[in-house]
Simulated assay, not measured.
Amino acid sequence: MKLSRFPRAGSVVAVGALALTLAACGSDPEADTGSGGSTDSGETSSLSGELSGGGASSQEAAMEAWRAGFQTANPDATVNYDPVGSGGGRTGFGDGSYAFAGSDAALEDDEMAAAEAQCGEGGVIEFPGYVSPVAVAFNLPGIDTLNMKPDVIAGIFTGEITAWDDEAIAADNPDADLPSTDITVVHRSDESGTTENFQEYLAAAAPDAWTYDVSGVWPVKGFESAQGTSGVVSAVEAGEGSITYADASQVGQLGTVAVGVGDEFVPYSAEAAAEVVAQSPRTEGTADSVYSIDLKRDLPGTYPIVLVSYSLACGTYADESTAELVKGFMTYLVSEEGQQAAADTAGSAPLSADIREAVLPSIEAISAG
């Protein structure tokens, strides 16, 4: 067992509700989400100790909701989450720095191998914990929404379309007063699952316009960049004519794109994103404890730029207290109550009952090795 670098938690009374104190978030720990610190079964428990995780910055708002719901019920338990980005989360989980992680992309083969080496015989648990639309967000005063076909979005993000009044944009927005302002593309500077999801969409929906290999690193040179979800959103808010891609929960008052799917334009929504996940198959050939999804991005009536952010944990940990804390946290995260808390705060799409039932057995089996 190789988990000696995971933080040691204090004694655990029982598994269930978990208080979350996020190092990266500064909200009021007494915030009331109505959860009362109870699980779906109505039971309450008190966990103690400290647990550290990190990863996808897209999950910040959801993490804050999970923290607020359980702080009162478990005042002696602390969960720290560092929103370093998906790449940092996967690396930290694989090298033992984090006991759990969030990633906006499923583990690649080499990353899975590193994680399995850390987790030992209990293996890796990977499941979708947070589902959200990725908004294409822009700053054009007086314009709240624009229609864009996939090849237009790809043309902007490759630098082929450089002005807001370009004919390709104007053709699907006859009523918009488009300025001649130059388009400033802002992308993530860190390795990011949001970047990978966005590129996967471009490669699938506009393969002739987007010819780059898909990865978590932005491939096009010469654009502006910023760290994390909050960084790219702040950069666009500060620059008229700017555009980016970001988790929809954090785009605030920026204008957003209704994406062309077939003959219609679909604005982002949690419901439209959830439908993509519901109609997409589970990846074949994975372990029972690994639940990843092969997203279908051309389904009529759905919003195709969807982010599935995975939660990562081990099946076994070096000590019982860490195992109990991780089990309690993950159990709440996938519960109806936890998913609804995230939806209310972050606008995410709650997991379906089918996915919840599929992943719970692996979470409930978490133990000390």
Score class of each variant (00 low, 15 high):
residue 1 M to H: 10
residue 5 R to T: 14
residue 11 S to M: 05
residue 16 G to L: 09
residue 18 L to Y: 04
residue 21 T to V: 12
residue 22 L to S: 13
residue 23 A to T: 13
residue 28 D to K: 13
residue 33 T to I: 06
residue 38 S to L: 10
residue 53 G to K: 14
residue 71 Q to I: 00
residue 73 A to P: 06
residue 84 V to P: 00
residue 89 G to K: 08
residue 94 G to Y: 10
residue 98 Y to C: 03
residue 100 F to Y: 15
residue 106 A to I: 09
residue 107 L to C: 05
residue 108 E to S: 12
residue 120 G to P: 03
residue 121 E to C: 10
residue 121 E to K: 15
residue 124 V to T: 12
residue 124 V to I: 13
residue 127 F to M: 08
residue 146 L to M: 05
residue 147 N to R: 00
residue 161 I to K: 13
residue 180 S to A: 15
residue 182 D to V: 09
residue 194 T to S: 07
residue 203 A to E: 03
residue 210 W to Q: 08
residue 212 Y to N: 11
residue 221 K to R: 15
residue 230 S to V: 06
residue 241 G to C: 15
residue 258 A to Y: 00
residue 260 G to N: 03
residue 263 D to W: 04
residue 268 Y to F: 11
residue 269 S to F: 12
residue 269 S to R: 11
residue 276 V to F: 06
residue 278 A to E: 13
residue 280 S to W: 12
residue 281 P to F: 08
residue 281 P to E: 12
residue 291 Y to I: 04
residue 308 V to M: 03
residue 313 A to Q: 11
residue 313 A to W: 10
residue 318 A to G: 13
residue 332 Y to V: 04
residue 343 A to C: 01
residue 346 A to S: 11
residue 354 D to G: 05
residue 359 V to G: 09
residue 361 P to Y: 07
residue 368 A to G: 01
residue 369 G to I: 04
